[in-house]
Amino acid sequence: MTQTQPATDGTPGGAQARRRVFLRHLLRGERPYMLYIAFAFMLVVFSFASPWFLSVDNFLNIGRQTTLVSIIAVGMTFVIIARQIDLSVASTLALSGMAAALAMSFLYNSWIVGAVAGLGTGAVIGLINGLLTTQLSIPSFLVTLGTLSAARGLALMVTNTKPVIITNEYYFAIFGEGSVLGVPAPIIWTAAVVVGGILLLHFTVYGRRIYAAGGNPTAALYSGVYIKHVTTLAFVMTGMLAGLASLVLSARSHAARPDVVQGMELDVIASVILGGCSLFGGRGFVLGTLLGSLIIGTLNNGLVLLGVSSSLQLVIKGAIIVAAVAFTRR
């Protein structure tokens, strides 16, 4: 007997099938409902525990606080699905921010010049990571551990550890202080990156190749997937997103500093893994990564509002992350 396939043409049945496929892709992952339950539970607990938590201003504050991690974590999702890892994202952010600020200070005080310099620097570091990993067959853990140190050293060296002041008002408005319909620019950039990541990962040929490269590299190679190119592009994308995060951070602080966000790569990786991505590759979804980032950001925000000491915050956050990953593991 011939199995009837769901309609995918322009008929109402085809439209319903496409919507089901879209929702299936958005919810893709192992037991993703646990993420929604954990997030909802956290919101309820903090809402009762603190009178200041349940407010629009506080939610916007959480969105701004999680912007950097969320943006970079989208790129990290691609890297980890491809069975790799990038430890250099925080240092890439620092160096990209310095490049953007220096370009506007010494070349031309234009936000476009700063954006190109920041994104370009991130892309170059990502390309170096990708080529060293794929062409020389060096484990990405070791490659990015090296670039983590090298990029941070360059960021500190170019201005002798001094910050670079930024004065371009358009730069501030576009990346840091502007808003659209009351929504701050950093949150808009986060939303744009997340939507772009969902479309690229779940609805393009490249996304299917990333899953294939990480899930079963041998089968992917025999299927015609050039794993080296796919993996290198994932590193480049992650570097560019770290560059974008540097623009947001430097626009908010009106300066670029070489010593910023040290250790942030751990929050980025934790968000991706918490969101259902497997460190062994082949599994993950962008919406889960965003939820992972929001869970960590909401936890930090709620603990601060409750007056919990910083040392105890680290203990609680670590325990909750381990528990959440245990519930969402394969």
Results as ranks from 00 to 15, higher is better:
T77E: 01
V89I: 11
G146V: 07
S137D: 14
I128C: 07
G29Y: 04
F22K: 14
A123T: 03
Q65N: 08
G214W: 01
F22I: 15
N216D: 03
V180H: 06
V194E: 13
S105L: 14
A192F: 08
V261L: 12
G13D: 07
A323R: 10
L303W: 08
S110Y: 04
I85E: 04
L247H: 09
F203H: 01
L95Y: 08
M34Y: 14
G239M: 07
T11D: 10
L233W: 11
Y108E: 13
L266N: 14
A155T: 05
I72A: 00
G97L: 00
W52D: 14
L294V: 15
I198A: 00
A324M: 12
V315Y: 11
D259F: 04
V195S: 03
L241S: 06
G214V: 00
M42F: 13
G130K: 03
A270S: 11
A90I: 06
L294A: 05
F327R: 04
S96G: 12
R208W: 10
A38L: 03
V308H: 09
Q3A: 15
V116H: 00
P186H: 03
P12T: 00
I227T: 12
N58L: 04
A326W: 15
G297W: 05
T218W: 08
T167H: 11
N58S: 03
Y206E: 09
I125H: 01
G130Q: 07
R152A: 11
